[in-house]
């Protein structure tokens, strides 16, 4: 049974249909990529998987690990093992990164029936993860994402992913706004989390990220539907030829 099974998903926002029948299934252990031009529905799909309000699913289903994912609140999805790495991580003034991470981790652990971590256990775990990502303790003391550079925000996303230990990680345009060094650090962090029990869905406009996070399958999303699927070589083909064959002229 696939870990994630999306069947004929239609969704709209304020009456405007964005997704027009998505079918996608991902097995545990696999990394899939969705590539597509701006406005194709990539971010909508990621938000619907994470449970953001404001989208109406008009048809179809999303089954995650045997559960109806769409019936769960965002926090229940996180506990069930869905993680969305945001394209634009939200800045939250007044809430320290450490408080945020600890509250999140213990919220998820409580729902999973695991023991909550005390302050010492939390710090020990988090510091080790921070070091792997080249993050300083000082970034734990600062307010969530406030004053973080683009690269620091994305590293912070990967840190959260590592701590929350999801079954399915959805990475929404994780490469946007990163220079090549930052991209390599983030990709290394993501690759370290690949494993037989975990699936990943890497959403990106450009092929660049997929040189670092090499996918098993690539899907082309345009006009709210998966137009084509293939192996990792499909990404290179798109890089060379653009999205023109899907009726999209991005130069215009």
């Amino acid at each position: 049974m696939p870990l994630l099974e999306i069947h004929n998903l239609h969704a709209s926002i304020q009456g405007r249909e964005i997704l027009r029948g998505i079918d996608l299934s991902i097995d545990a252990g696999q990394v899939h990529s969705i590539m597509g031009p701006n406005g194709s529905g990539k971010s909508t799909l990621s938000y619907i998987l994470a449970g953001r309000e404001g989208y109406t699913v008009t048809e179809g289903s999303v089954t995650f690990n045997g559960q109806d994912l769409l019936a769960l609140a965002p926090e229940e999805r996180a506990a069930a093992g869905v993680f969305l790495a945001f394209q634009y991580p939200v800045e939250i003034p007044g809430v320290s990164n450490a408080t945020f991470l600890k509250t999140a981790l213990n919220g998820v652990r409580r729902r999973r029936g695991e023991k909550e971590l005390d302050a010492m256990e939390f710090l020990k775990l988090t510091r080790a993860r921070c070091r792997q990502l080249g993050m300083t303790d000082e970034m734990l003391k600062r307010a969530v994402n406030v004053g973080f550079s683009g690269g620091e925000k994305k590293r912070n996303e990967v840190l959260q992913m590592a701590l929350l230990d999801p079954r399915l990680a959805v990475l929404d345009e994780t490469d946007s706004g990163l220079d090549i060094d930052a991209l390599r650090i983030v990709a290394d962090g993501v690759n370290a989390l690949r494993g037989p029990d975990r699936a990943m869905l890497v959403i990106t406009h450009y092929q660049r990220l997929l040189s670092y996070i090499v996918p098993d399958r690539v899907h082309v999303l345009a006009h709210g539907r998966i137009q084509r699927s293939g192996g990792k070589e499909l990404a290179l083909e798109l890089e060379a030829r653009g999205y023109a064959e899907f009726g999209i002229d991005e130069a215009a």
Binding site: A73, P74, V95, T103, G107
Partner: peptide, 21 residues
């Protein structure tokens, strides 16, 4: 939404944001 997507339930997320304010 960001807080809830990280597993923090709605009431706790609200009180975190109010406390920050």
């Amino acid at each position: 939404f960001y807080l809830r997507a990280r597993g923090i339930d709605r009431d706790r997320a609200r009180s975190l944001l109010v406390a920050a304010f």
